[in-house]
Write a protein that binds this DNA or RNA. Sequence first.
DNA 1: TGCTTGTTGAAAACGATTTTCATTGTCGGA
DNA 2: TCCGACAATGAAAATCGTTTTCAACAAGCA
Lengths: 144, 144
Amino acid sequence: MKGNGVERVAARLRHRGRRMTVQRRAVLEALAALGCARDAETIHARARAAYPKLGLVTVYRTLEAFVADGVAHPVFFGDGRVRYDLSEDGGHHHHLVCLSCGRIARVDECHLPPSRRLGRPQGFTVTAHRLELFGYCPRCAPKA
Amino acid sequence: MKGNGVERVAARLRHRGRRMTVQRRAVLEALAALGCARDAETIHARARAAYPKLGLVTVYRTLEAFVADGVAHPVFFGDGRVRYDLSEDGGHHHHLVCLSCGRIARVDECHLPPSRRLGRPQGFTVTAHRLELFGYCPRCAPKA
DNA sequence: TGCTTGTTGAAAACGATTTTCATTGTCGGA
DNA sequence: TCCGACAATGAAAATCGTTTTCAACAAGCA
Ligand SMILES: [Mn+2]
Ligand SMILES: [Mn+2]
Ligand SMILES: [Zn+2]
Ligand SMILES: [Zn+2]
């Protein structure tokens, strides 16, 4: 993550009465370095490289703040732990999860119809959706 | 749930070395009566009407067995609790969740491209997917 | 440089789900 | 129909990811 990005995030946090701290900077860097869908513990481990005293609790609180401020997004694979993705300007993306080795691949194209069409039959106004794909990665062989 | 369905489920369980008990029957009935995406506690409360001594632990264990045997499917909305749907013969379905009142509507059509196309770019073999839609129900007014 | 407040870390609390373990009950076989 | 092997049950305790509590700290503004 280029120092520039940190500043943009800092600005967004400050805008909400929040402050930019070394801890949050470390979590932000970790989030950017790790890439797609990492859980709090993984982020914690990585962020500690930059700031060893960092507590796991702070990572949780920081992620909560990031999500509230639109800096990050939670991702759910249904295994009981929440993962996080750094938000990007150009819209959302989904994931491919290997059921064998756990590898995660990003899926940028969203093949779903526009939101306003998705809920029409039931009269819902759709504002968001979550889609995750499960299967086997190339290395774990098809039909594993 | 027609007694017939119970028999079919019983057969499927027995086939795996499992047994059909009053408790499981009660959970099955509750699952059928409650409909879309209910959590263990809700299912427990309902099933108790038929079998008051039923323990919540047994509900969890039964749901686990049902899922393993394909009798039920877990549904995740990302709020930290797992919900369950009774499996049906004709394929899967998704859900619309009202962010205001929590109402859940079923979405039968799956607007996604065929599995084999979804993971192609990254070389994945897609065997399943999870899609949930979030927004506002008719009663909670659009743009709530 | 102070002061006001948001932030932090350790420890304890939480809530959903799982495990332990002694007891009970299902169901295939005699 | 009766047995017995072993799956299932329930209560209590244990897990585990995440949240809350609380006293010490430290951003950011005057
Ligand atoms: Mn991602
Ligand atoms: Mn459903
Ligand atoms: Zn793999
Ligand atoms: Zn609603």
